[in-house]
Design a protein around this nucleic acid. Structure first.
Lengths: 344, 344
DNA sequence: TTGTATGCGTTATCAA
DNA sequence: TTGATAACGCATACAA
């Protein structure tokens, strides 16, 4: 009862395999009646064309890969959800790879994708901003690549990002307007594309306000919660900044823990704004001011660009920039507002 | 330069395709020297054995599928991360499918997986608890299936769940001990496995405490935020419960929004406990008491069971039960504690 | 240790 | 409208 292939089905129906095959292809000429017969028999025996055989024959896999630095993170899970939805609508399947922020894993993953397993790749980068010519091999294999959010500047492929510079600038200005004089910038890796751009927005906003930029206020953090707790504890006690711009959500969370732990009051002693896709930012204690990226849309846009390439209607090197939204809340304004129905 | 296949490589090396093939398979007899030659040449020309051809030949795909109701959710993204890690260690690739809580999509996905695309499936169910014989077709195709968290009782496959009944019982008892007399139970779908089991724990805890069970206090919610806001607003104003047990995280979030909106004080007016994998529960206003499931471990365990089946060392119908942890916080105790370093 | 030949399950080309 | 046949790229049984 198992192992039903096209041949078996053809025998049972007294037809040739080619005719049976045609029943499953949209275009081909085939008698509607026999097609119906075939499909009903296929259903009965639970037959489906073998995926690998088809793909070997057709030289495409109807599968794309998503590579992300982490998964248990609102931003990426929303983005992936967006990608998955578009892919599904296009009849594509979605492979997922998590690098845990380790560049080497990213390289390994990519390496395994040269062999025809996927038709295209959507990636948010884990490595630093430059020198990734190894990716160009994908081009030789005609496997299109699209970046979202975290990009490599030296690779010329379609990209979807948010207006990181502007957001960072606006957030910093906001903190200044709220009276902050000593604003720390929290970053995981300055060489990463987003860290870099976001820091520039921060610096330029300081400059525009006539505030001097101090290198000691740029705080290099890590991917480890406990380490960050130590780093931030030290900074908040020694440098005593009165404002904080977190370039990624995780660092704002750590800052909250540290402040609660040290008895530093938000926003009285320190005001905080963070890049974050946290839906419950308004429910935090205190409500967190965020730069909210349209994560889901970032995903759908990236997927759209990939399918453009896959369908051959690609200009080639689009760069879509979506707008984030600065949403000031209690953590920076001090104003206690009632959260809306779901956090607007 | 593109289109390097085993034949081309063999020609360049003056070898046969079989020898080249052997260089890539671990076991086969081959002269270490020629193997080295082949591999170096392969590297140079960026050759990798075609995935679909290999799989067609070997009749397995080294790929598994994960099917989940939603993605932008801490519980599932952590679980997926766990699965992905184990799969990667085993050299498997991971396809992901999101049903958006729609049972019909689940059926469609499964349907597409009969064709050899995957070797096994790990799923958290979207449908109700019974009558899913359609899944047994997988068995005919020898595609093992493992459930985690949300299971179908009528399907006899390995499962990984948490001690939902006990947790629910304990949480309810906790609320009673905190003085609650009218405890509402929030559920999305009573027929879903977890809704069902968790409700039973709630009912039995009431009974054990001599509190009468009132059907009006079991609140049927939906998957829609706005609808839930309306439903919960009504309940909190009309029934005025003094305790709340949310069977899924999302409903606790909605409750918070409603309470803030209506000026109902947590925990003075109402005490709240929720099933939740939210890492920042201690940072909420007020800190949310949770029943925390070991999401990541649920994932790794499920993956382990699947690979047991795949590797033929399967007893067949294990049911692993992991323990959740009831963590009382301000939302139910009223005691304001300082959050630990990262939420313990 | 290496080479030859066959088949994995499809689909496309061509002829009927 | 249908059927025969070759080819997709690889891995193995068997022969050398």
């Amino acid at each position: 009862m198992d192992r039903v292939d096209i041949k078996r089905l053809a025998e049972k129906l007294n037809l040739s395999t080619s005719t049976v095959s045609r029943a499953f292809r949209g275009n081909s000429d085939i008698n509607p009646e026999t097609k119906a017969r075939i499909l009903s028999m296929a259903k009965e025996f639970n037959y489906q064309p073998n995926h690998h055989a088809s793909n070997l024959r057709e030289k495409k896999s109807k599968t794309i890969a998503i590579i992300v630095p982490e998964l248990a993170n609102n931003f990426f899970s929303q983005a992936i959800h967006g990608i998955e939805r578009v892919a599904r609508e296009k009849g594509y399947h979605t492979l997922i790879y998590v690098t845990d922020d380790e560049y080497q894993k990213e390289v390994t993953f990519i390496d395994k994708l040269y062999n025809g397993r996927v038709d295209g790749i959507i990636m948010s980068a884990s490595g630093e901003a430059n020198d990734h010519q190894y990716l160009n091999r994908l081009d030789n294999k005609h496997i299109p690549l699209v970046f979202f959010d975290r990009v490599y500047d030296d690779i010329d492929v379609p990209k979807v990002t948010t207006d990181d510079y502007d957001s960072s600038f606006a957030a910093t200005r906001h903190l200044i307007e709220m009276g902050c004089k000593e604003i720390a910038f929290l970053v995981i890796n300055k060489s990463l594309s987003i860290g870099n751009v976001r820091m520039q927005g921060y610096r330029d906003a300081l400059k525009a306000a006539g505030i001097e930029y101090e290198t000691e206020l740029v705080i290099d953090c890590t991917n480890d919660y406990d380490q960050n707790f130590e780093i931030l504890s030290k900074v908040l006690q020694e440098q005593r900044p009165d404002g904080l711009l977190a370039s990624v959500e995780r660092l704002a969370i750590s800052s909250y823990y540290v402040c609660h732990h040290l008895g530093i009051r938000i926003p009285e002693d320190i005001k905080i704004v963070s890049f974050s896709s946290l839906e419950i930012a308004p429910l935090l204690n205190p409500a967190l001011s965020t730069i909210t990226q349209p994560a889901y849309e970032l995903g759908t846009n990236a997927a759209q660009l990939l399918f453009n390439a896959l369908e051959g209607k690609a200009p080639g090197n689009d760069h879509v920039v979506l707008n984030s939204k600065l949403i000031p809340r209690t953590s920076s304004t001090g104003i206690k507002t009632t959260p809306g129905k779901r956090g607007e």
